[in-house]
């Protein structure tokens, strides 16, 4: 199977500034790929190149086997694109705007009406359809932008921060929408919200400084967190010394931290050696030592943590460069 989206050594420079630096990437049908990275890492620039808005300085972007530079109009007809900030023509009503886009996408008459009705229904726009877009709330504007990208049921969806500015319910709704569409499409979503990656993405990449640093499933990414599979326990302070004595010698344990004390209850985080699972042996060892454990849970590791580890290791990451 050929990849729906195929980037080969894609690069973009603005003057001396290298915004995107040799990105190789393949996205297949059914995948929802999360683009993560600090502001100015090159996420939006990469998306703009895939969508055919700006030309790469070098390298190629192929969409369903079509080179975006050589076949721009054909490639663009396969893509639904939500640009950063979801720009729309504010003086038009949502209905007129969607009519305009579907007309350009090649739909007429009843087919156009059917398409517009369908996306309006999916993103729930009915109540504001005849208001000028300028007068709509941020959430509705974003949904109009999303509707515009979905009109032609494209094989490829490129969504630049689709849930930015939405309230939690709306975010939930958009995430479900993306998941529902995922099966027969290749979707790229950029986001700052790491929980979103866990919620909707089947795969995630971290981009920093225009370079692709990590590529894997959200679980694989999380396993890179230093507290991945760490065990946190709460015990009565009376047992503290016992815990510190017993736990470090359990096989697979790398270390133990005292992370807090509430009343007479002390909490410890027990870090595993990379790759080992320690919940079972630790709890067995504590039971044997007669320690009364009040609480025990396994940490999965937070994406935030991984994100910081990876991007902060890169000295200039996080600085506002060209978006």
């Amino acid at each position: 199977m050929t990849a729906m989206i195929e980037l080969d050594n894609l690069s973009k420079s603005f003057g001396n500034l290298v915004a995107v630096d040799g990105i190789d990437l393949k996205v297949n049908k059914g995948e929802v790929l999360g683009f993560l990275g600090p502001n100015g890492a090159g996420k939006s620039t990469t998306m703009k190149m895939i969508a055919g808005f700006i030309e790469p300085t070098s390298g190629t972007a192929n969409i369903c086997g079509l080179n975006v530079l050589e076949n721009p109009v054909l490639a663009k007809s396969r893509i639904g694109y939500l640009p950063e900030g979801a720009p729309t023509y504010g003086d038009m009503t949502a209905r007129r705007f969607l009519d305009f886009v579907s007309e350009i996408r090649g739909f007429d008459g009843t087919e156009r009406r059917r398409r517009v009705d369908m996306v309006v229904d999916r993103v729930i726009l009915q109540s504001v359809l005849d208001q000028p877009i300028d007068t709509l709330s941020k959430g509705f504007k974003r949904r109009v932008g999303l509707a515009q990208a979905m009109l032609h049921d494209p094989e490829i969806l490129i969504l630049d921060e689709p849930t930015d500015g939405l309230d939690p319910n709306q975010k939930q709704h958009v995430r479900r929408l993306i998941k529902d569409m995922a099966a027969d499409k290749a979707i790229i979503v950029s986001t700052h919200i790491l929980e979103e990656v866990e919620a909707v993405c089947t795969r995630a990449v971290i981009i920093s400084h225009g370079k692709l640093l990590i590529d894997g499933t959200p679980e694989e990414l999380m396993s890179k967190a230093h507290n991945h599979n760490a065990v946190v326990i709460s015990v009565d302070s009376a047992y503290s010394d016992k815990v510190i004595e017993v736990v470090p010698v359990v096989s697979g344990v790398k270390g133990i931290d005292h992370i807090g004390k509430v009343g007479s209850i002390g909490r410890f985080r027990i870090l595993p050696q990379p790759g080992s699972t320690i919940a079972e042996p630790v709890s067995a060892a504590l039971r044997e030592a007669g320690v009364d454990v009040q609480e025990l849970y396994v940490e999965r590791g937070a994406l935030d943590e991984v994100f910081r580890q990876i991007t902060v290791a890169n000295p200039e990451a996080g600085e506002d460069k060209h978006a």
Binding site: P83, E84, P87, V101, G106, Q148
Partner: peptide
Amino acid sequence: TGTIELLMTLPI
């Protein structure tokens, strides 16, 4: 307004 990005990524 940034709509140029919308316009120029339509198939025209």
